[in-house]
Amino acid sequence: MIVHSIFFYFFSVIAIFSSLMVITSRSTINSVFFLILDFISVGCLFIMVGAEFLGMILLIVYVGAVAVLFLFVVMMLNVAEQKQSWFIGKKSTHIPTGLIVSVLILLELLVVVGGWKYKKDVMSSSTLVLSDISNTHQLGLVMYTDYILYFQLAGVVLLLAMIGAILLTFRERVGVKKQSYINQISRGPLTSIELKEVESFKGVKIDD
């Protein structure tokens, strides 16, 4: 048990420290790296309480995909410059928006935790049987039976977000040469080679 708590405190101290560093460090790149460290240590905490599936999914989705995108954005855009302007007193329109969003998230978290505390059967499920099967199986059994609607809805919301992002950034470019594999493969000597009699001193016009 001692070893267990040593590991628990080790990971949770790293998690808390790195989450503090995310919002306090001056360099945005370092913020993203601390965010990654935070994700990893929270993943380890998940694994320690026996939720190995959630821990691994956290690593795959957040660290392997989402944080890579963050890193890209931070490296490509000059976020640091904008952040510096806050410290030297320029007016920024981002702070009120950020405050509103964070208050909303706080309220939502309170509602979720409150509902969990005061309505005991929120988490109950007709198919959840506590036995010694692995929690991946249990998760699957619950998610694809009782909560299939919410699961599918979440998928549709994600799909919508993706389509929206593509639509917003899509611009049709004209005059771009595109390789058409079908045209390339389907053309043969009959359609692509043409013999021409070339008269001397007159030449011939090709490629018209």
């Binding site: 790149i29 691994m56 999914i57 690593l59 795959i60 660290v63 392997g64 890579v68 890209f72 991946t136």
Partner: peptide, 23 residues
């Protein structure tokens, strides 16, 4: 229990070494 997920997670983290080195 989640061996294959672990492998997948670790191989998806491999991209960090490259981005960090390049940046």
């Amino acid at each position: 229990n989640v061996g294959i997920l672990y492998l997948f997670a670790v191989s998806s983290l491999g991209v960090y070494g490259i981005i960090m080195g390049g940046w």
